[in-house]
């Protein structure tokens, strides 16, 4: 049941219009971070306030929402955001990737291929890929405007000189439509190749007050070198629950004696595979 005390999807209409204008500009300039007047949300920063605001501005009453946190539908962050929209927007929710029309995600892209009719909303902690290389916003703005991305390649090169390979494993920088270098949010680099998808991808960073987007079928290239090409790595195991050899795995420590198991990070994917066998 919708909480009648709130406007549809919690935010007031003027706030939604402001976010919607930012989303349109973000789609028009793929990978560019559009500033927006992020609001206080009834959850702490770091819990997806940016993603929640983007979802609130995007949802219609007919939508079916799925929320995942590191691939899982049943973790605290996912459950609380799903309940939030059940109460304030009255939308239907689901855990099945294929049934969802809007998917809000923290740090994963679902294993199942997304379709034209779906929208993927990412929660983003630090939207600026150059932030840890250059702390000044005025400078990073200028670097983006001049396509001055050499520093990012130096960072990847230092990975190679220290570790013999590009050791950056998540939030692996990408270049969108041949122009802007973008932080894909802290998804594992295993997910990077999936970003060239049929669905619309929207990114919301609440604390940092930025929205950016990747339209469908947009070229998304992970930065690399000719002699050290990008590799989408995963743990060298199969899922101990469903046997999948193609999914991204979580390593779970089972006891104090070094026992461990590897399981799919995407709970819906793992569950669907086990159902199919049973």
């Amino acid at each position: 049941m919708t909480e009648q005390a709130y406007n549809f999807a919690y935010l007031d209409e003027q706030t939604k219009r402001m976010i919607r204008r930012a989303i349109l500009k973000a789609l028009a300039v793929p990978g560019y971070q559009v500033p927006f007047a992020s609001r206080e949300m009834p959850m702490p920063y770091g819990w997806g306030t940016g993603g929640v605001q983007v979802s609130a501005a995007t949802l219609t009453p007919e939508d079916r929402l799925k929320v995942i946190d590191q691939g899982a539908d049943d973790t605290t962050n996912a459950v609380s955001i799903r309940k939030f929209f059940e109460r304030t927007a009255g939308v239907a929710t689901t855990e099945a990737t294929q049934e969802a029309t809007v998917i809000q995600t923290r740090h994963r892209i679902p294993e199942a291929e997304l379709t034209e009719d779906q929208i993927l909303v990412y929660q983003v902690p630090i939207p600026e890929p150059l932030r840890f290389l250059e702390p000044r916003e005025t400078e990073t703005r200028k670097m983006h405007s001049l396509q001055e991305y050499g520093l990012m390649h130096v960072k990847l090169y230092e990975d190679i000189s220290q570790h013999g390979a590009i050791s950056t494993a998540y939030a692996y920088p990408v270049r969108v439509a041949g122009r802007y270098v973008m932080d894909p949010s802290p998804i594992p680099k295993f997910d990077n190749p999936k970003m060239e998808m049929a669905a619309i991808q929207l990114f919301g960073a609440g604390r940092e007050q930025r929205i950016y987007a990747v339209p469908p079928h947009t070229r998304v290239v992970s930065l690399d070198f000719e002699d050290y090409p990008f590799e989408a790595t995963r743990a060298d195991h199969v899922c101990d629950l469903c046997g999948a050899a193609d999914s991204y795995l979580d390593e779970v420590i089972m006891d104090d004696a070094g026992g461990r198991m590897f399981v799919c990070s995407d709970t819906d994917y793992c569950h669907t595979r086990r159902e199919a066998v049973a």
Partner: peptide, 19 residues
């Protein structure tokens, strides 16, 4: 019904801009 009408309209506008 402003919230719902605007949500539907924006979805159409956003989809058009994205495609």
């Amino acid at each position: 019904n402003a919230p719902v009408d605007a949500a539907h309209a924006f979805r159409a506008a956003m989809t058009a801009m994205a495609r």
